[in-house]
Nucleic acid binder design. Structure first.
Lengths: 235, 235
DNA sequence: CAGAAAACGAGAGCACCGCTCTTGACGACT
DNA sequence: AGTCGTCAAGAGCGGTGCTCTCGTTTTCTG
């Protein structure tokens, strides 16, 4: 009645776990395109058709890998955020950024699966929308906390924001980052996409050979984005 | 002696062109993964092996598609930039950004081929490095012109820049955007990656359902990035 | 406890893919 | 006119995702 009641369910769960593990290893070495159900079956000593007892299609296996990837990235981001004092908002932002970059560089193929070209013909099921925003949720928490602590500076630049646009941003992001005014949300959205733009460029080789070490440039960019968002050190 | 001397060379060039055209159409509808030499051959009424007389492998066909894509994007960016008065630097920046976004939305699969996950096992040949930076070259031209016109504001934020990092940025980007100081280059690099981060998020469906119309939000972000770069309207 | 039902691994097979090799015909240059 | 290179065609190799069937084994049920 607890978990794994019958022997069959136990071995099924174990085999499912093993399939995913082998698939993740293949994904890490060959990339998403090189993930082959037949190869997984071969490595398990099974016949290829037996895999379909556990995953009805290659896309379903990819889906669990994607969900696992979002969770791994989200967990890394959560850990990095938790390691910084809660009222050091620029520090938390920088920690989150470096966590995303470090994880992406350590798992480039999984990152590509999450943020690269969509798999042709693949449609993300509803199960992915939870883990998908796990990192964004951390960022939203930082923003909301900064706003409540009075550590979110109002916009300084000469760019005025359309009130309707700010309202739409508030309505759309209220669940993830409550209490944050619309103009700050727009700046935050820009910074967030900038983070992933940088990481994608780096992981996908667009920066190839431009810098000897990209980390200092990334760190500088992160700090500049932090001030653009309006994050200030203390209340 | 000029072009297409013999009849054979003429028909060969024509068939090569037709293969590329069909391949690009398949790429646009099916995506990079669905590009099949056999399907191209079928559509041409040829047998599959005959294709290999023109392209020694699928990767070679992909390479020409990639080069064509970079050129198409670069040309769109160049046209957009040329349509704005040369001394309206924020306007030129915004025009370039919208050109990138518009082209990407109009050709999502080709954009994915250029800026999405790298094709597994595919190594970009040297032929691509020229067209690859065509858009960046336009951006560099805007920056250099703004700098020479005194329309590139010095950094205002409280983020100080490491001199060594600024020097490396100058050395690395001097060919593309001369005369621009290192700290401005770092800000520009951040803005550039931010642009592609946004476009990638939008094309790859990461923004799905967040906004009814993403264009105003993008435009706002572009303007904010323009001021972050330091671009000012006139000399 | 015995029988029905469900789950399982194995195997054959379908259609597709990239790519290679050989064959025979056609065109171009000497 | 003869030779040589280019070409389309066809067969074939090993690989893929996926489907179906067939015994076997395990689980559930009457």
């Amino acid at each position: 009645m607890t978990a794994s009641r019958t022997a069959r369910e136990r071995v099924r769960a174990e085999l499912t776990r093993e399939i995913v593990e082998i698939a993740r290893r293949q994904l890490a070495t060959e990339g998403a395109g090189g993930l082959s159900l037949r190869a997984v079956a071969r490595e398990m000593g099974m016949v290829s058709s037996a895999i379909y007892r556990y995953f009805p299609s290659r896309d379903d296996l990819l889906t669990t890998l994607i969900i696992d990837g979002y969770n791994a990235l989200g967990e890394a981001v959560e850990r990095a955020d938790a390691a910084v004092p809660a009222d050091d908002f620029p520090g938390r932002w920088a920690a989150v950024c470096h966590a995303v970059r470090d994880w992406a560089l350590a798992h480039p193929h999984e990152y590509a699966l999450l943020y690269g070209s969509p798999v042709p013909g693949y449609q993300a099921p509803q199960d992915t929308i939870g883990p998908r925003v796990r990192d964004l949720t951390v960022f939203g928490g930082i923003l909301s906390a900064a706003q409540r602590a009075g550590a979110l500076a109002p916009p300084t630049g000469p760019v005025e924001v359309d009130p309707a646009l700010a309202d739409e941003a508030e309505a759309s992001l209220a669940a993830l980052m409550p209490d944050v005014p619309g103009d700050a949300l727009l700046r935050a959205l820009s910074a967030w996409t900038s983070l992933y733009g940088w990481v994608s460029f780096e992981v996908f080789g667009q920066f190839k050979g431009a810098f000897a070490d990209l980390r200092p440039a990334f760190d500088h960019s992160v700090k500049a984005l932090g001030t653009m968002i309006g994050l200030t050190p203390s209340g």
